[in-house]
């Protein structure tokens, strides 16, 4: 089974988010990391491959399972691909471009589909959404551009009939679930928390250096911000809702004030 995993590099969870003077982007002098939901997509791909190799369910005469990590991002994003390779991806594709952070979900989906033109994947996995712009759309748009079926908020993946079909467990609201089945190629957006994320091993980090990383650019693919279908007019720090009371003082003083208010709300 050949699996493409789409990853995005986003500002670190605790990184300060500061707005550029043009009010349309954030300053990029922050530490970056792989978008956590995308790590779960990578984890799902690695587990699928391991299950197929161990279970001997690699169809006879078929090429071996292969996991390809792809990112659309500026030069810094190659670090995300190195990490994915170290964790077990077989090769990587970097769609490089300084304008990448300005692209909307549609333009990123165009970049992804153009970058993989001529290749055929059985599965394309993405995280549920990026923790920076939170569109939650890129995977679904990739499916639409490829004419492939898709499903989102996926908890579990089971190949059916070799690699011709795929069964996936969707999470619905309120703790309900549903299995869906569709032909491959298919696009699945993976729910976060589907399993414990692995760390790269020392061996993996060593091997990653020799794994192929293909570079292409937004320019070569003809993708630029003018493809965007939505425009960020202004970014700002939202006003805090008024009315809440902040309790001040030392921890003990805060605790005493809080205890008094809790007792008022729920007297025994």
């Amino acid at each position: 089974m050949k699996i493409l995993v789409c990853l995005k590099q986003v500002p670190g969870k605790d990184a300060p988010v500061r707005i550029e003077a043009n009010q349309r982007a954030i300053r990029d002098d922050v530490p970056y990391e792989i978008n956590e939901p995308d790590l779960f997509a990578l984890e799902a791909a690695l587990r699928l491959k391991e299950a197929q190799v161990q279970g001997g369910s690699e169809p006879a005469g078929e090429p071996q399972s292969e996991i390809v990590a792809l990112t659309v991002g500026p030069a810094r994003a190659s670090q995300a691909l190195r990490e994915a390779l170290a964790k077990g991806a077989d090769r990587a594709i970097h769609v490089e471009g300084a304008e990448a952070p300005q692209l909307d979900a549609y333009a990123v989906a165009e970049a992804i589909t153009r970058a993989i033109a001529g290749e055929s994947y059985d599965l394309i996995l993405t995280g549920l959404q990026a923790d920076d712009d939170g569109f939650g759309q890129t995977g679904v748009i990739v499916a639409e551009l490829l004419g492939a079926p898709h499903a989102t908020i996926i908890m579990e993946i089971v190949p059916v009939a070799g690699r011709a079909r795929i069964r996936a467990k969707r999470e619905l609201e309120g703790g309900r679930f549903q299995w869906v089945e569709m032909p491959t190629p298919a696009v699945l957006a993976i729910q976060s928390g589907i399993g414990k994320l692995r760390y790269a091993t020392l061996m993996g980090i060593k091997q990653a250096k020799n794994k192929p990383l293909r570079q292409t650019t937004l320019e070569e693919l003809g993708v630029r911000p003018s493809l965007n279908r939505q425009v960020i007019e202004r970014l700002y720090v939202p006003a805090k809702r008024q009315g809440g009371e902040l309790l001040t003082g030392t921890a003990a003083e805060q605790a005493a004030q809080l205890a008094a208010r809790i007792r008022r709300e729920i007297p025994r």
């Binding site: 707005i19 939505q230 425009v231 007019e233 970014l235």
Partner: peptide, 8 residues
């Protein structure tokens, strides 16, 4: 952050 967003 909050963003003001429009359609093309």
């Amino acid at each position: 952050l909050a963003a003001e967003v429009s359609f093309r």
